[in-house]
Every structure is written in C-alpha cells, then in structure tokens.
C-alpha cells in the first residue's frame, strides 16, 4: 500500500516501480482478452496512462488496488474490442477438415488449437469471466466488482461458458469461422 500512496503523491520513481510490478499482470490479461500481442502492448501503455491520471481517485477502503487495476484493464480491453468489427471469412480461406475425423471430447481437450478456437468463439462477456476466473484465479466476488455485475451473474456466466466450451469441444469444428479484424 505504501507504493500506491507514494504514487498518489506524485512520486515518479514509485510509479516506475508500480509499472514494473504490475506490467505482466496487465499485459497478459490484455493479451488473453485481445488475442494479440501487439494490441496488448498498446493496451499496457494506455492502461498505465489511465492509472497515472486516475490513481488519485483510487480509494483503498473500497477494495484492493489489483481489483481496481483489473477493472481499468478489462474496461480498456473491452472498449478496444468493441471498436473492431466482425467479418466473415470466405470458406475457401479456411483449411478444409478431414471428413472422416470425428475426434472425441477427450482428444479435443488435449488439442491446444481446439481449445483456442473454442475460447475465441465465446462471447466477449463469457470469455472475460473465464479469463478472470481460470487465468487470474479471482473469486466470484472480485470478478463481480471488476465487471460491475452481481455475483449471481458471474456464476451463471461461468456455468454457461463452460457448457458452451464443452459443446464446442465435443463436436466437429465448424466449417467456417468468424474472424475479428480491426476496422
């Protein structure tokens, strides 16, 4: 907490220490939400610019600094994603699937690419709670605070996300994908 207080008084050395302490947390969370290393690096800068501007408004009595930092990070990344648009990819650009292959749920659970695709097909809301729970290991109450939603909504979103992932992984991949590209 001492570091945060020093940052709030305008101590630039403390801010540098804060950046180096939390840069991986912000960058990696942004990377998982945005699915792009370049965008995550941009987001890292933008998030810490916001932190620099808004740190004076952070009130430790209302919650932990990391929860506040996650909130700034997630809000920035979601706003960035909303500025992208969805574009369908023509069928010929997608590698054809082997017609006889029907891998089992267990096989597909072992398959990195299948999991990556299944996660990328989740809606923004579902993917965000999955990342905050199963990567950041935050409690439902913390996730609720970060996303400004009730704990019950976190519970139902996680349940739906896992059910969706299981369905995705238990079936043959779709023959076309949605690809998100920058406007």
């Amino acid at each position: 907490m001492d570091l945060i207080r020093r940052c709030q008084t305008g101590d630039e050395e403390a801010f540098a220490a804060l950046f180096h302490q939390y840069k991986n947390l912000v960058y990696r969370t942004a990377y998982l939400i945005l699915d792009s290393a370049d965008e995550a690096e941009d987001a890292l800068q933008e998030v810490f610019l916001q932190v620099h501007r808004l740190l004076s408004t952070f009130d430790p009595s209302k919650g932990a600094f990391t929860t506040w930092l996650y909130r700034v990070t997630v809000n920035h990344c979601l706003s960035r994603r909303r500025k992208r648009r969805l574009l369908t990819v023509s069928l010929e650009k997608v590698p054809p699937l082997a017609p006889t292959e029907h891998p089992s749920f267990q096989d597909r659970l072992e398959n990195e690419e299948a999991i990556r695709q299944a996660l990328s097909r989740l809606t923004e809301k579902l993917r965000t709670v999955v990342i905050l729970r199963y990567y950041s290991e935050l409690s439902y109450a913390e996730i609720a605070q970060i996303l400004n939603i009730p704990v019950g909504t976190v519970k139902s979103r996680l349940s739906l996300a896992l059910e969706t992932l299981r369905k995705e992984l238990g079936t043959v991949p779709r023959t076309f994908l949605l690809k998100e590209v920058a406007k």
Binding site: L32, E110, I115, Y134, Y135, L162
Partner: peptide, 10 residues
C-alpha cells in the same frame, strides 16, 4: 484444461 491452456499461453 482451460486454466492450464490460459496460463501456458500467457
């Protein structure tokens, strides 16, 4: 598996 995937990827 999801947790492991996300952690390895990050």
């Amino acid at each position: 598996r999801v947790s492991q995937f996300l952690k390895v990827r990050a």
